[in-house]
Computed example of a mutant assay.
Amino acid sequence: MGRVSGRSCIVTGAAQGIGRAIGEALLDAGADVCFADINGEKVAGVAEASRQRAEAGGGRVTSAAVDVTDRAQVRAMIAHAVEMFGKLDVKFNNAGVNKPMNFLDVTEDNWNFIMGVNGLGCMIGMQEAARQMIAQGGGGKIVNTASIASRQGFDNVAPYCASKWAVVSLTQSGARDLAKHDITVTGFAPGVVATEMWEEVDRDLMAIGASERPGQAMEEFSADILKGRVATPEDITGTTTFLASRDSDYMTGQIVMIDGGMTLV
């Protein structure tokens, strides 16, 4: 039996990167997993590619297209997962966006876009998951994706930093409110992770003149990592599977740093 055998999980932002790796690791550990993403076609392909993995782990897999800022779509995603798996045990609010701009150039549109997905999307995801967990009884787990940017501000990504500080606050607030329902709320904070999102951020930083060549931003951001290298998505999943498992049942309101020693707090 795997560490999360029999547990029904939803992972948003799961079409690529950290979200996809979280879902795949959960399948390996025996969970039922709904891979969810705004790119419905891409995430459906991820789920299909994971079917053999699910069978090997003893779980089931499905997918859902969702805009995490749209409450009706979030409710529909949860309803789909419950229809497929019978319940919802663990909800990963992992979907996130970034669009670097120099601090003095940040616009209302940039702020609203990033805060909408990373902040409001997390809040809606927590609320609707909790409502389902309360209705079905038996408690549950909500896990939010924060960032090193939730612990330290960076000049070219101010709205992103603010949004990830919001994730920490939402995690603590949710933990306090939902404890009476036996629902735990935790989170994890990755550092520099080699994903498609980082590749896009690298291009954006070049476009605004914050770096001069491909890869420079990652090199500079990762220079102080004590482990001596950037992370892969698979470096994150040992912790995320732990947070989804019974091993973390006495843990709530906490953010686990997974940054190779980049930010010591």
Rank of each mutant, 00 (worst) to 15 (best):
C161G: 10
I38K: 01
M77W: 11
G139P: 10
S211E: 09
A207C: 01
A14N: 09
G191Q: 04
I225F: 10
V68S: 09
I258K: 08
Q52Y: 01
T186L: 02
A65C: 12
F113K: 13
V256M: 14
I225G: 05
L120S: 12
G228W: 14
S150H: 01
V11D: 00
I114M: 08
I208A: 04
E234W: 02
M101V: 07
V192I: 15
K227F: 13
D235W: 04
G174V: 10
N118G: 05
S147P: 12
A189P: 05
N110V: 08
A64M: 10
V66L: 05
Q216R: 07
E234H: 06
V106S: 07
A179F: 05
Q254E: 12
L104E: 13
V201I: 15
A162N: 00
F85D: 09
W165I: 00
G174H: 06
Q52S: 14
G191V: 02
V193P: 10
F103W: 08
A149I: 00
G260Y: 06
M126P: 04
I148K: 02
F154I: 04
Q127R: 15
L226A: 14
M251Q: 07
D247Y: 10
A21T: 06
V61M: 08
M197N: 09
K87T: 14
R176P: 00
A79Q: 14
Q132P: 03
A217S: 14
H181I: 04
F188H: 05
Q152W: 04
A14P: 06
T145L: 14
K99W: 11
V143P: 08
M115N: 14
